[in-house]
Write a protein that binds this DNA or RNA. Structure first.
Lengths: 212, 212
DNA sequence: ACCATTTTCGACTATTAGTCGGTTTTTTTT
DNA sequence: AAAAAAAACCGACTAATAGTCGAAAATGGT
């Protein structure tokens, strides 16, 4: 009952790596089992189908990405800072960025799409909590919070996940986010640093800046 | 030089119908050629690959859907009315709605995604023109028009293409669209009629809060 | 009638997801 | 420790399917 779990995790890790690097469609079961050094039957002892493997892999990714967000939520920073931190935490890590933007390549649309969908699903309640806190702190002012948060996330996903966005996109996105949540003009300028910046660290400074 | 064109169109029509009704993934080349009564080789004489067939089918759909929009643009209604008409014209026809919401089913994500993407690409310039006209008419007031229009379309696609949206979603979408384009409060309520049929429009309360 | 071009054919290959009955390994029971 | 049961594993096999290829048939101009 223990060995099985380890094996399943091993297969999951391999699948994860291969899906990311070569894409879901371009990864065959044979690829996976060769890498793992096991037989076909063993693979299907652990997974009902390739499809289901994808499901599990995505589940795993989302889990990993949201657990950081949850701990941020439970901390006691001010709402805006939480927002910064959470949004930063759900941006895909560089290692997860498949080579040559493979995630955006046509053959990987499925995986990409699913990840986005699940991520939104998971993050909406978290960010909604933050917005509620922000309302108490007088930073935000709006109704229908989950719906608004969801739209914000959808927009951010669709606009910025693919590499091709402009400064104008960012400007408009900030503008609309502020209006969406009823925030002060320019109060959400920190978003700029979360998106475009090739600079690695500096998540802390984001908050420092918007108190002008 | 004539027969070929007809045949290609015929295959395209068959592929279109089958992709829509059974989904892209669930339609095999054999399905198509059986329906058409031709041999494998003939099919591949006209199409390089299944993938490329999908490309052509989508091209065809988009073309059909946008040509109506273009003629609306060229007419001389007031801007708001044009907007209504164009948005209405790009909503998928019932016949194109695959059975049982097949377009949203996982196996059809690819096709669905591509259609949305291409449609946005095509419609952004058209609606941008309308918004420009609307600005001259004093209805809208904003900068970065194409970016804003694009966001509006992305949101509408992601929110309303799948069946699962609420009245709240519509309310927030209207609110945000007005703010996005700098339109008068409630001036874009007509969107409600373009999206959902069932609900009576009494749920006006959404924006009552943030009037300041 | 002849040739070139276009169109058509269908058998064949290659890849791949998934199945199945049996074998080995591990754990539990006696 | 032996036997039984359960878990983990094996790999040959099936079925589906995208795509290839060389040859045959239709077409059209001269």
């Amino acid at each position: 009952m223990k060995k099985g779990e380890r094996r399943k995790q091993e297969l999951l890790d391999i699948a994860y790596r291969m899906f990311i690097s070569k894409g879901y469609e371009n990864t065959s079961i044979d690829d996976i089992i060769n890498e793992a050094g096991i037989a076909k039957g063993t693979y299907y002892y652990y997974f009902k189908s390739k499809e289901q493997t994808l499901e599990a892999v995505i589940e795993m990714m989302i889990e990993k990405e949201t657990e950081a967000a949850v701990s941020i939520l439970d901390s006691d920073m001010p709402a805006l800072q939480k927002m910064v931190a959470i949004i930063a935490s759900i941006r895909p890590e560089p290692e997860e960025q498949p080579i040559e933007g493979a995630l955006m390549r046509p053959e990987n649309i499925i995986m990409h799409q699913r990840i986005k969908q699940k991520l939104v699903e998971k993050v909406v309640p978290l960010l909604s909590k933050v917005v509620e806190e922000g309302m108490e702190q007088g930073i935000f002012s709006c109704d229908y919070i989950p719906e608004r948060v969801r739209m914000m996330l959808i927009l951010s996903n669709e606009l910025f996940d693919e590499g091709s966005f402009t400064d104008r996109d960012i400007d408009v996105f900030i503008d609309i986010t502020e209006k969406l949540l009823g925030a002060q003009k320019n109060s959400m300028d920190f978003i700029r640093h979360l998106i475009a910046a090739p600079a690695p660290s500096d998540v802390q400074t984001a908050n420092a800046e918007d108190k002008r």
